[in-house]
Design a protein around this nucleic acid. Structure first.
Lengths: 219, 219
DNA sequence: ATGTGTGAATTACTTCACAGCG
DNA sequence: CGCTGTGAAGTAATTCACACAT
């Protein structure tokens, strides 16, 4: 029934934003052309990987030259659906939620936080500069009315699942989850997790082994 | 020269902290035993994957029963080097750095932020509750004296590389980088990146396609 | 010359499926 | 029985290497 034959591997989709990010810096620097080799060195992937990844979507380079930075960046942005900015609901107005709400780096990259929500009555009404914390009731209305598809969850782990359930119920289809818990969502809903502690733990593994090794070496 | 034959795939190492996190919740709930099936359902991986991952490190389960939660958790913590807490330097005392400094979830999981540093004279001296912002000169001293191996970088992209260079120079071997740039490090130094915008962009890809599809369907 | 785009080869990762143990 | 641990089988992802375009 569906015509599109090949689905793009998720690993590739996850790399595209990194390519876009690096290309944006190159554009800022006024660099007009870049080879897969050069781009790869900047972001720590092989040239072949970049070429292969891009080949899923078309032919954007010129043999013997490389890629036109603006041209490729425009294409990747279009592929990622970043031609318009995306309205995003932010749930949780604690330390982390406040920092996210105040972070300037979202709007410059097509992410527009349109509401901050918390169920703590003490937080509702709080002024976060550009935004004022609202209740969950307002959240439901906003998502419905403005057709919000993306949300950031920055609530404690104990509340994350029920918040996600509510978001999904109202039509959110992509969730960036800062709570240290794997949330369950139905098919068709995307979740990405951010757990800084888990990332640190995946490094302590190597550091602990290195530490042990160097002690042995000293014997 | 080295005896250890098989090196563990990094994907496996990255999953261990997720297993540990989930096991810690199970322990809190008072659950004593868990099967790979049950654990897998909680965290969204297959039972076979969990068993295979664990098999790299030993045999921790009992046939017909499953895994003792405390026992397995203890083993994973030991594997990850989490028997003692890790001292960590935090660089950058902006909105994000402040939120990280105040976050309670580090200390409960073996990560102890022992210093916050910023090169902005206006920020140095700032009271962040448990910690006071110090200068980069103090940072170098602390890393040297306390033998700090882990750092969190929460400075603007433009400063990230030079901060990382300094950290590495003083002996830091694991870096959690919040700056939206891929930093270059020598061999033997580990870096993990957190870029919420890139994660959101990897979801807009799917949402944009879904959106387009539903419009076609309506014709 | 230089650097893309891509099938083929390789390597890495996941899942299967079942022997064996409690 | 139920569920682990694990070789074998099956997928997926990456890298190679080269024809071809500029």
């Amino acid at each position: 029934m569906d015509i599109s034959p090949i689905t793009i591997p998720d690993v590739v989709v996850r790399r595209l934003p990194i390519y876009a990010r690096s290309l944006a810096y190159l554009a800022e620097e006024g660099i007009e052309s870049v080879s897969s080799q050069e781009l790869g060195e900047r972001i720590g992937v092989t040239a072949a990987q970049i070429r292969k990844d891009l080949s899923y979507f078309g032919e954007f380079g010129k043999q013997g030259i490389g890629y036109n930075v603006e041209y490729l960046l425009g294409h990747i942005r279009r592929i990622l659906g970043l031609t318009d900015s995306w309205p995003v609901a932010l749930v949780g107005a604690g330390q982390l939620g406040q920092a996210i709400a105040r972070y300037e780096g979202f709007s410059t990259r097509g992410i527009n936080i349109v509401g901050v929500f918390d169920n703590d009555p003490d937080k509702v009404g709080m002024d976060l500069g550009r935004l004022i914390v609202q209740s969950y009731a307002e959240m439901a209305k906003l998502i419905d009315n403005q057709h919000i598809r993306l949300a950031i969850v920055a609530v404690p782990a104990s509340q994350a699942q029920q918040v996600v359930d509510q978001l999904v119920e109202h039509g959110v289809r992509g969730i960036l989850n800062y709570a240290p818990i794997v949330v369950q969502v139905p098919d068709g809903v995307w979740v990405r997790h951010i757990d800084p502690v888990a990332l640190l733990h995946s490094m302590t593994y190597y550091l602990a082994r290195e530490e042990a090794r160097s002690h042995v070496d000293q014997q």
